[in-house]
């Protein structure tokens, strides 16, 4: 077992973990952050486990828990403040971009990462940014609309 120090959604913790566990395992099983999903069997193919690791968008299934030692992780649970949804989350709900919801947390984090780097993305940039997040329900169209929605909200706010 290894002991790692990790800051998750702003909270510093020390956790023991076996070397062969992924960051996804740690977040879900040890920390109960079940907004982080596994849809492909931890192969890095679906993006459902997307989180921010030191501010960078990653698939948490492809990061060993031990590799997150000393780092900061933001999950979907860390995006909202108390009961208020983040404007991107709100936009996904209002635009009808949420159906079964299983891909939603990951897709929202990808949208967040995009809008942090590119405040006014084109449709093409949005599709590229969401291309690591498989969705089987929506056909992505309403997700693209939701990101534009959020773009406007965020630019008003700033």
């Amino acid at each position: 077992m290894l002991t790692i120090e990790i800051t998750v959604n702003g909270t510093y913790q020390q956790i023991q973990t076996a070397p062969n566990r992924s960051l996804l395992d740690l977040l879900r099983d040890d920390l109960g952050l079940t907004g982080v999903k596994d849809a492909c069997g931890q192969e890095g193919e679906c993006g459902a486990c997307t989180v921010l690791l030191d501010g960078k968008l990653v698939n948490s299934c492809l990061v060993l828990a031990a590799q997150a030692d000393g780092r900061e992780v933001t999950t979907i649970e860390g995006l909202q403040q108390l009961e208020r949804l983040h404007p991107i989350q709100q936009a996904f709900v209002e635009a009808g971009a949420v159906q079964c919801g299983y891909c939603t947390p990951g897709a929202i984090l990808s949208a967040y990462d995009l809008l942090m780097h590119t405040p006014h993305p084109s449709d093409e940039q949005i599709r590229e940014a969401l291309s690591g997040n498989l969705c089987r329900c929506t056909g992505y169209t309403k997700m693209v609309a939701a990101v534009h929605h959020a773009e406007k909200e965020l630019s008003h706010a700033s």
């Binding site: 709900v93 949420v98 947390p105």
Partner: peptide, 9 residues
């Protein structure tokens, strides 16, 4: 259920 889904809850 949009709220719970979008918030990961």
């Amino acid at each position: 259920d949009g709220w719970t889904k979008a918030s990961g809850q």
